[in-house]
């Protein structure tokens, strides 16, 4: 029983982590909250759904196309809601992304309708027992994808020139510019990668729950934000761990106290952790 609950919590936590990776990358470079991340996640999921359900595209191909589309959306998101406001107060960007988020949610509502949609993936949703604990194939896929994305992102951040530029900008945008970093392109690139990751998370989550609907990005967006803060803001592995802690604490609270208060308990844990570690679990001192 307890073992199964831990697996349940881990699976839930990984779904948060997956969303948090892209969110954290975008936050890291500008130090700004992107309220539209959840909607990019939703749009990515819907693109994959449309390709598979209406055009009969292979699931894997649809997954890749949805990622590409989300990346493109990230580019435009940065162009519309972030670049013009780069010198404005952070709250301005927040409201701009809120506007985009509201628009996209209702746009999807009109295009795809408010109903919940699904796609059939018999293999992915099948499950097997391992020592009395039930594990489904898609949970394994999510685990592998999360690890791969995290690892790939660390490679990009620490081994490529773009990654170097991204890290430089997140340290000091002005100095990076003076050192010859192409700030505009690098920031745009960060949004493309971050949003592509968001789209990937959306497709996987849609498949995992078997549910695609216009408001599907709202909760994960919120939880990604919390996971990121728990993990210390700029650290991607930190965000992944933050997501897992969130997932496990919610699941256990639901299982051993009441599912009615599980979200309240997870927020309580968040607040307690922050009171003891005011910079998050793996955070370094940083003035955002």
């Amino acid at each position: 029983m307890f073992g199964q609950q831990i697996v349940n919590g881990l699976a839930l936590g990984l779904t948060y982590s997956l969303t948090a990776i892209g969110f954290t990358l975008i936050f890291g470079v500008l130090g700004l909250i992107n309220f539209a991340h959840g909607e990019v996640y939703m749009m990515g999921a819907f693109i994959a759904f449309t390709l598979v359900a209406f055009l009969g595209v292979n699931y894997f191909v649809a997954f890749l196309l949805a990622i590409a589309f989300s990346g493109l959306m990230g580019y435009f998101l940065e162009l519309i809601a972030f670049r013009p406001l780069r010198n404005a107060i952070p709250e301005a960007t927040l409201i701009a992304t809120l506007g985009v988020s509201t628009f996209l949610k209702e746009f999807a509502n009109i295009i795809w309708g408010p109903e919940v949609h699904t796609i059939n993936t018999p293999f992915l949703s099948s499950s097997f027992a391992l020592g009395g604990i039930q594990i489904s194939v898609i949970q394994i896929v999510i685990l592998i994808v999360s690890v791969l994305l995290m690892w790939g992102l660390q490679l990009i951040l620490y081994k490529t020139k773009t990654g170097y530029a991204i890290r430089a900008i997140s340290q000091d945008m002005g100095a990076s510019y003076l050192m010859g970093v192409n700030v505009d392109n690098t920031i745009a690139m960060t949004f493309v990668i971050g949003s592509a990751l968001g789209g990937a998370a959306g497709v996987l989550m849609g498949t995992y729950y078997g549910a695609f609907y216009p408001t599907m990005g709202y909760m994960p967006g919120l939880k990604a934000f919390v996971a990121m803060v728990l993990g210390g803001l700029t650290s991607i592995p930190g965000a992944v761990i933050g997501g897992i802690i969130l997932g496990i604490s919610e699941t256990l609270a639901g299982a051993y106290i009441s599912a009615g208060v599980q979200d309240a308990i997870s927020f309580l844990i968040l607040i307690l952790i922050l009171l003891f570690f005011p910079q998050g679990l793996s955070g370094k001192k940083r003035s955002a």
């Binding site: 013009p84 010198n87 301005a92 409201i95 701009a96 506007g99 985009v100 509201t102 628009f103 209702e106």
Partner: peptide
């Protein structure tokens, strides 16, 4: 949809 665009528009117009 219109309310979302209005919000975005206002903030882009007056930062």
């Amino acid at each position: 949809v219109v309310v979302g665009l209005l919000m975005l528009g206002v903030i882009l117009w007056r930062h």
